[in-house]
Amino acid sequence: MSTLQEKNKEVVRRYWFELWNEKKGEVLDEIALDPVTFHFPGGQAHQPPTLHKWFETALIAFPDVHFQLHEELAEGDKVVSRWSYVATNTGEFLGRPATQLKVTDQGIDIFRLEDGKIVEMWVAQDSLGLLQQLGVLPE
């Protein structure tokens, strides 16, 4: 694998570990363009306009969110991550009060990078399962 793909993988690892797990919001401007172009599934519960807003909202709703990176691959200008998270809903989410429930979700993201920054993301995760766990929809 070429150095470019290794470097791109490092940027995406910073996204998962430094931004989301260590909650270092300041790395966002180092690792991503603002705004990133998102491709969300139509049924995704939460569709934030920017990564900054996404991070801000998540820290209110799920401040202890912790991601695990299960698999990754890089080719050309893309990096793919297969991930899961656990989090506790201790703040408002989608206009609903905190439930104090512990939830888990998993998904796959494709990142496109330009000049060492994330510029585009394709996202797929289990919104139905998340809403069931939060009690918004019954199991």
């Binding site: 599934p41 139509g42 049924g43 995704q44 519960a45 796959i108 797929a124 995760q125 139905l128 809403l131």
Partner: peptide, 9 residues
């Protein structure tokens, strides 16, 4: 990972 929520809707 498919958009089951979107399909259900």
């Amino acid at each position: 990972h498919n958009d089951v929520m979107g399909l259900m809707q």
